[in-house]
Design a protein around this nucleic acid. Structure first.
Length: 283
DNA sequence: ACCCGTGTTCGCTG
DNA sequence: TCAGCGAACACGGG
């Protein structure tokens, strides 16, 4: 699932369910060791008795702060990787498939961290000092909260020969963009994904910045309504059935361009990842 | 059996 | 030292 909009939904869910509540118990499945640094599973017990105080998001990263009576705060850094998600279940519900960590809260609800492929990461952060996480060091402010500065982006791309689509996947430029949002943003901005990042004019970078934000908001609104097919945010929404795919170009190779001009959506591969675009209107 | 996958890091090459 | 690329991670779905 997770690019910026999906992680934002996860953040909202955690806030709604957990803020102000204390942790009753934590259980980690043995396979979950991959999610942690060595021996972190053991120290997960530090969370017991702690109270959810704040849930933040930076790009695709979740930053959770819990306070502890008479002790330092503790932070949880969560990155969902390819298939990670936070689900909520009642105490009586059976654990979902691929549940790796279960956090039981006072009041009966449980937070389930579910991750089929185990590319996600969970780490405890002493004192909730998230600035000590190397993975966050080079990230600029979150685009949803602070916007995207076109001047700065243009400057940082000035000598980058990578295709703009490939550059967009680098989290140091616009944190939260993933393979779907990169294609969607470039289509909305009418920019050819194969062009080098340095070739974009300031006008084009400005258009791209606005387009990315628009695509984030569009996907977020769709997820907040309950997903493309109304079954909740936890749905696989890229399917053959075009009516269930809420994206303009992603996964739509061979379809007419939604702009209705003349082009058809193509799928190409750039550094091993699929890119979808319309060769007629993206120049 | 083969290819593909919403992410990121690491090691190699030039 | 740096830019860029492919493999690797783990596991299911088409």
């Amino acid at each position: 699932m997770p690019e910026l909009p999906e992680v934002e939904i996860a953040a909202r869910t955690l806030r709604r369910v957990a803020l102000g509540r204390r942790v009753r118990s934590v259980h980690a499945e043995t396979g979950a060791a991959r999610l942690f640094r060595p021996d972190t599973a053991r120290i997960l017990q530090q969370l017991v008795g702690a109270r959810f105080q704040n849930v933040d998001r930076l790009g695709k990263n979740l930053l959770v702060t819990l306070d502890r009576r008479g002790d330092d705060a503790v932070g949880v850094w969560s990155h969902l990787g390819m298939t990670g998600k936070w689900l909520v279940r009642a105490a009586g519900d059976a654990p979902p498939r691929f549940e790796r960590v279960a956090v039981a809260l006072e009041g009966g609800l449980r937070l389930s961290y579910v991750d089929l492929r185990l590319f996600g990461r969970l780490r405890l952060v002493r004192g909730a000092h998230f600035d000590q996480i190397p993975e966050l060091h080079d990230l600029p402010p979150d685009p949803l909260a602070h916007g995207i500065d076109p001047l700065q982006l243009r400057e940082r791309w000035a000598r980058l020969r990578l295709p703009v689509k490939v550059a967009l996947l680098d989290q140091r430029f616009v944190p939260g963009v993933g393979n779907i949002q990169a294609s969607e943003g470039l289509w909305r901005a009418r920019i050819d994904p194969r062009r080098s990042a340095s070739s974009l004019s300031l006008v084009e970078v400005r258009r791209l910045a606005r387009s990315l934000l628009k695509s984030f908001e569009f996907t977020l609104a769709m997820l907040a309504r309950g997903g493309a097919d109304g079954r909740g945010a936890d749905v696989v929404y890229v399917e053959e059935d075009a009516t269930r795919n809420p994206f303009r170009v992603y996964g739509r190779q061979g379809s007419p361009c939604p702009r209705g001009d003349r082009g058809f959506i193509e799928r190409i591969v750039q550094t091993g990842r699929s890119t979808f675009f319309c060769p007629a209107c993206q120049t």
